[in-house]
């Protein structure tokens, strides 16, 4: 169980809903992952309302909580307006706040992010900011009113896994009481397990599952990896050492010569 902003969730995996081969596979992947929170976007409706209706009814049937995003927004104004539109449609104050600063890396514009976060927090939103692993930015976001942070571990969709373990470790160590969700850059279940072992509270991913050869199998694998990493974090892992230490007791060993 995972306590997030006063809500108890059965899983520490949050899953995106984009890029699946079909709606049926998306639905099966969500179920197999064990997730209780999925991300959704808002886009221009070109079919008089029917396209959105179809997708919305599919998501509604899954019984999961919605975390709407402001994906693709490049300015504070765009992000704030999109967040307000999402609140009306999805009837939730939760918002995954993205303010993109670079077209190639999809790196967050952290200056715009802090500004937008402040506006939305003052307006009553529970802001989940998609941010970098920069500790000072993290502190600014907390000052702006965010109660949870979502640092990347690598660029969106890159599947690189954690590229800066030192920064992630530092963020976790400096912000012990803040829910931290690694969002973006995870490629394999072992990446998810790695950041969970560091003590991150949850992970959010999409492409690694949706673009796998078998998204349902990969969703299940990520669910297990997240659980394994979390349990390992709470169970006191050994520190690596440079010498061998026998695991079988030496005492009582037979002597044949």
């Amino acid at each position: 169980m995972f306590e997030l902003l006063g809500t108890t969730l059965p899983s520490r995996l949050l899953l995106g809903t984009a890029q699946y081969p079909s709606p049926a596979i998306l639905a099966d992947a969500v179920k197999a992952s064990g997730t209780a929170v999925v991300t959704i976007s808002l886009r221009r409706e070109m079919a008089g309302g029917r396209a959105g209706e179809k997708f919305w009814s599919l998501i509604g049937s899954l019984g999961v909580r919605i975390l709407p995003n402001t994906a693709g927004c490049h300015s504070v104004k765009e992000a704030v307006t999109t967040a307000k539109m999402a609140r009306e449609v999805f009837d939730t104050s939760w918002i995954k706040l993205e303010v993109i600063g670079n077209h190639d890396t999809l790196q967050p514009d952290v200056f715009g992010l802090v500004e937008a976060a402040r506006i939305l927090c003052e307006d009553g939103f529970a802001v989940f900011p998609y941010t970098t692993d920069d500790l000072v930015v993290a502190e600014r976001l907390l000052e702006a009113g965010c109660k949870v942070l979502m640092p990347w571990c690598a660029p969106i969709g890159s599947a690189l896994g954690p590229v800066n373990m030192t920064a992630l470790r530092s963020m976790r160590g400096h912000l012990p009481g803040v829910p931290l969700i690694v969002d973006a850059g995870l490629g394999r279940p072992s990446h998810a397990a790695t950041v969970m072992e560091l003590g991150f509270d949850a992970v959010l991913l999409n492409t690694a599952v949706a673009r796998a050869a078998d998204p349902v199998g990969m969703a299940r694998a990520f669910g297990k990896a997240v659980e394994a990493g979390r349990e390992a974090f709470g169970s006191g892992m050994l520190e690596p050492r440079e010498v061998a230490v026998p695991s079988t007791p030496i005492f009582g060993r037979a002597v044949f010569s």
């Binding site: 995106g16 809903t17 984009a18 890029q19 699946y20 998306l26 991300t39 959704i40 976007s41 808002l42 886009r43 221009r44 409706e45 309302g49 396209a51 959105g52 209706e53 997708f55 919305w56 998501i59 709407p68 995003n69 994906a71 999109t82 539109m85 009306e88 449609v89 999805f90 969106i156 999409n206 492409t207």
Partner: peptide, 26 residues
């Protein structure tokens, strides 16, 4: 423009309107 205000919201020439609906997102 909130749903409840659409009936009273008067449009002007040149207005830019966005109509959005739920879509897949990451």
């Amino acid at each position: 423009v909130h749903r409840v205000n659409r009936a009273e919201f008067r449009l002007s020439d040149g207005d830019r309107i966005e109509i959005l609906s739920p879509m897949q997102g990451g």
